[in-house]
Amino acid sequence: MAVVSRGFHGRGRRDGRLPPGQRDIGDGFPVLTAGPTPHTPLEEWDFVVQGEVDGLHRWTWEEFRALPHEPVTVDIHCVTSWSKFDTHWSGVSIDTVLEGVETAAEYVVAFSDGGYTTNLPLEDLTGGQAWVVDTYEDEPLAPEHGGPARLLVPHLYFWKSAKWVRGLALTSFDEPGFWETFGYHNYGDPWREQRYAGD
């Protein structure tokens, strides 16, 4: 299923697509990183669903590439106040990743090469709201933007869209991730301007 947001024709804030406190970055795509860019060879790359699930679910790069991909066009919103309209990605829906996974978990910790983590409610990753993407603007996702694959959860601030993602750990308990343990908001809804804890 293709997910296509409303068309953007330079109307910016006026058509209600710019959350409060954000500015349109236009053609720019800033690279914000909290550590060195990993360069994991694809033959060593895998993606796993683990934790409180019915056994480990694992895909090699070739297996992941063979999963059904879908095009995604969405606006993205960084907590540092830039937003970018109509970004084009291709990836695997988390609904597809979790097909056949039995779990009673309510939370997820996405984890990445380099040690980055971010936490989300499981219900925010399902229902066509989140993907593991490996393609940006019809090109393989560049390492500086999280390639070979990153999480994409566009309805939350972009720190939730973990770069270099390698798996999801499903848990019964909410475990704050890298920025969430540093005073950033646990949920991160840009439309409610949830940048910091207490917002």
Binding site: L32, T33, A34, G35, P36, W159
Partner: peptide, 10 residues
């Protein structure tokens, strides 16, 4: 790493 949302020192 000053370009993250906060300064990260490794």
């Amino acid at each position: 790493y000053p370009d993250a949302p906060a300064l990260v020192v490794r």
